[in-house]
Amino acid sequence: MTTEINPRSDDTRVILILDDDAIARSAVAAYLRECGYTVIEAATEHAAKTMLDSPKYDIDIVICATSDVSSEDRFGFSRWLREHHSHVRLLMAATIEKTAKLAADVCEEGPHLRKPYDHQNLVAWIKRLRA
């Protein structure tokens, strides 16, 4: 039997990042973990909804950074989130730079109350990984 690790075993806040770009998603998730958050990575909207609907994961914030989803789909997800999980804060970003800035802002409210490094370095890291 798979042993469960409770994602809320302490006061850690949980962020779900929805991004179909594996490199950007991984880098932003790593940054947010350094800020003290528990981070769930979803590559698809279906996976994001699975985690949001599960009673096991009390998600506080969703960062939606999916770049190649149409605006209509983004608004559809935003509407679904408002209807089904109105307490969850949704942050949307269309570019890596915007996502990194959002992550930095969220980091400053997080458990460690300070950024592990400047968000411009996060953008630079993502670009290096892609090169």
Binding site: T2, I5, A47, T50
Partner: peptide, 10 residues
């Protein structure tokens, strides 16, 4: 995602 997340957290 749930299985991946659980193992990753371990």
């Amino acid at each position: 995602i749930e299985i991946r997340f659980s193992l990753a957290q371990h």
